[in-house]
Design a binder for these strands. Structure first.
Lengths: 202, 202
DNA sequence: GCCTGTCAATACGCTACCGTATGGATATGA
DNA sequence: TCATATCCATACGGTAGCGTATTGACAGGC
């Protein structure tokens, strides 16, 4: 089923359709590839349609990012947050992060477009929020305020860096077992062993 | 002293001048901003000059990256490599990495342009080499082959990720002391304590 | 059955960049 | 001194994208 024929069935497009397509393009080719005319071609339509739904290209971008931020970006944390034990929660967070791709691909693509004024604030909020969440979990694990802050930054930095080295550099494609072993090492290194921390006083 | 007047003194440009300017632009605005006409303006010259020195824009990019790879990219390792004790070597590597900016800015800018066919292989080589170096140091510290591989990836990933969060996201501008404290935390977390590892058999 | 609002096609002008062609300037050395 | 090699300016044609203006198609409410 070609793009154009898909369109023939749906007949008309909504703003949401454009945002959805824009997010796909971000995942596949990055923010810079979100261009009106290519997008229109992709949807089997001309830009005459686009400029009915949006005023400018940047408006589309902003709408797309807004949608991403509130729909996708917080999904993982929401799932894991039910786990009571902080160590299990962190562990599960690390583990889940290591599955699923698309969400990371998008995050990584946005990371490469931080110079864009519409992208930066969104990424700031999302990243801050996640680091904050990590920090709280570390805190609950018994780390001091300082250590929790530092460790959460380190952990999140490791996540972000791994994304680059993996998805984008394709440093080498690891096997599934190799990857599991790596995640285990990360967990062992970045999550304090059970009973190794006594609650800090601060 | 304006760009144009600087040019009036040097009078004529060499290919190296163009590569140098290109690297500056990469550091300031990323790979995508390396464009012939803007570069010419920056150098107080027209593109008539450029196309005498280079055949295409991509040729300039490749030459620039080639120069960067062999001149700048290995500088840090070369300095640190004289240190005999592996733990001190790693420590000094981490510490030095946390000073100086420009080299990291460039590395980070190149990271954002990995889709470009001229950039990817360069970054692969440079990153591989560095991770390899880290791994060897960890090995010398007594870690097993597996652990050294994993730990070096983790450490380098943390470096790369921190670059993004810092230089590009400007998550918050840390003070110098805050930053020192963070580096100390990283060192304590990612470099095994002295005497905590007994040489592995593998 | 037609009017109106909704979505889309077409055609246009504009900007920024790439790459080519050709001639001009300048320094150097024979 | 003048010839050649080196470096640069100018002018041109081409592409890809943005945004606007105008008209067309069609469905639903009246």
């Amino acid at each position: 089923m070609s793009v154009a024929s898909a369109r023939a069935e749906r007949s008309r497009l909504s703003a949401t359709d454009w945002e959805q397509a824009a997010l796909d393009v971000i995942a596949e080719q990055g923010v810079a590839a979100v261009a009106v005319e290519p997008l229109a071609r992709r949807l089997g339509v001309t830009k005459g349609s686009f400029y009915w739904h949006f005023g400018t290209r940047d408006e589309l971008l902003e709408a797309t990012l807004r949608r991403w931020e509130q729909a996708d970006a917080g999904a993982l944390i929401a799932q894991v947050d039910r786990i009571a034990d902080p160590r299990e929660r962190l562990l599960e967070l690390f583990r889940r992060t290591s599955r699923e791709m698309r969400s990371h691909v998008i995050y990584s693509a946005l990371l490469k477009a931080l110079d864009h004024p519409a992208v930066r604030p969104v990424m700031q909020r999302v990243s801050q929020r996640r680091i904050q969440y990590l920090s709280l979990a570390y805190r609950a694990l018994g780390l001091s305020r300082r250590d929790a802050t530092h460790r959460s930054r380190l952990a999140y930095g490791a996540y972000v860096g791994f994304l680059q080295l993996m998805l984008l550099l394709k440093l080498e494609r690891m096997t599934a077992e190799e990857f599991e072993a790596y995640v285990d090492h990360v967990v062992a290194t970045l999550i304090p062993a059970r009973g190794s921390v006594q609650p800090a006083a601060d």
